[in-house]
Amino acid sequence: MTLDWQILLVALVITTAGMYVARRLFQRVKSLTSKSGDGSCASGCGSCGNVTTNKQPSVVQITRQATPAKRR
């Protein structure tokens, strides 16, 4: 097989495609190994997937004291 322009182009295209797929794969694996909550949703509150039912009574929500979440 002679090394003509078509072979060179094919090599270039396949290499580019391979790099693109590898990059996507790397990003996916990276996201899989990220810690809880990192980028899991836009909120960044870090509690996604680790939700526990609110044990606090509903009553704390209706008081005039501010920031009810701090009492969790």
Binding site: C41, S43, C45, G49, V51, P68, A69, K70
Partner: peptide, 20 residues
């Protein structure tokens, strides 16, 4: 604001200024 589910917790978290 009695947030029980994760989506409600996200909302309450943001309203309370506790979201990163």
């Amino acid at each position: 604001l009695d947030a029980l589910s994760p989506d409600e917790q996200i909302a309450r978290c943001c309203l309370a200024g506790e979201a990163a």
